[in-house]
Write a protein that binds this DNA or RNA. Sequence first.
DNA 1: GTCTATACAGGGATAGAC
DNA 2: GTCTATCCCTGTATAGAC
Lengths: 201, 201
Amino acid sequence: MARKTGSHSDITGPRVRSAARSLIARHGFAAVTMRQIAREVGVQAGALYLYTPDKQTLLFDLMKSHMDELLEAVSSVDLSGPPERALEAFARFHIAFHLDRAEAVFVAYMELRNLTEDNFAVIEDQRKTYENLLERILQRGRASGVFAVHDTKLATMALIAMLTGLTTWYREGGRLDRGDIQDMYWDMVRKAVGADAALSA
Amino acid sequence: MARKTGSHSDITGPRVRSAARSLIARHGFAAVTMRQIAREVGVQAGALYLYTPDKQTLLFDLMKSHMDELLEAVSSVDLSGPPERALEAFARFHIAFHLDRAEAVFVAYMELRNLTEDNFAVIEDQRKTYENLLERILQRGRASGVFAVHDTKLATMALIAMLTGLTTWYREGGRLDRGDIQDMYWDMVRKAVGADAALSA
DNA sequence: GTCTATACAGGGATAGAC
DNA sequence: GTCTATCCCTGTATAGAC
């Protein structure tokens, strides 16, 4: 219960992570220094090592917890219905989740190169797990004849790239609101897989 | 005609650029050191400064010449025909060009953050010029009623992201050949803009 | 044109006082 | 838990010999 004066580990920890995420998103992992992060948090550089054993682990933890959150969140989306409904649910979830976490998403996509081999394997595995959810929807839709997709792997990559790309241009308070974006992307996704014209192919 | 022994400026220059492009694509600009580039080329670090005033300019030149090439190449693609044919020509060109230059594309997309403000403005302007070619096709198609696109700006970003995303997963000699990829992406692009079902929207 | 040698700044990480 | 101080390394870039 008793805690020493100046003890803020439960506050400073998250602040370190938040500052790191933000700086890395803007400048890239290799370009960001521990001293910069410390300055942003308002502590000395040495103090950061109370919260992370080293810089690499700090990056890994950011990416890992982001992917954990993503997989946790998507697990409560109902993807078991008819393929078209499942696809819509997936697309809308993906957009909403990614719009809420532009920085974390950006880091998770851009900094894969800077993970050690072992750490990369962990994140890559999680990413694959997520992508497989989409691919299975496409497979189900193709099997039941409601989607016209030649190659479900390629289509999965194409759709993920399209949906995730919005984080590179979306800015809060811009011309389009979140609902508009979800509607318009969903419209393009739906058409791209031939969900309304499967029999014509 | 006479040339000093050990003079290789016309050979070493391109080799410096090539090594830099490859290393930056793999590890990121900030993570790559001048010593690494020099080692790859087989010269001493100091010798690199015969070919570039500094590291930033080296990056800028890589990105600038890539964008120059892109704009030059696309200028010989006929985009003036009917919107659907123009869109197909654009999509196939984009894929072929990007598959041929995976490293350069990767650098051009990932390292924007590491350009100085002035250099960024130049590249961004070129990128916008390129994207506008696609947007104008979408506008023409919508105006003539052959495309069902709600927002041409958003659709432009979505299609560019989808098409460019292939550089993140495509590997030479993989399961799919270039023609397959072009065909399948074009099929998705065509459907995404409602090119075969515009009247149903 | 390339080399060796080096200046100088800044990096990550640690030790030990408080 | 945080600080100051510092170690040691590596970065970019330059100078001057060959």
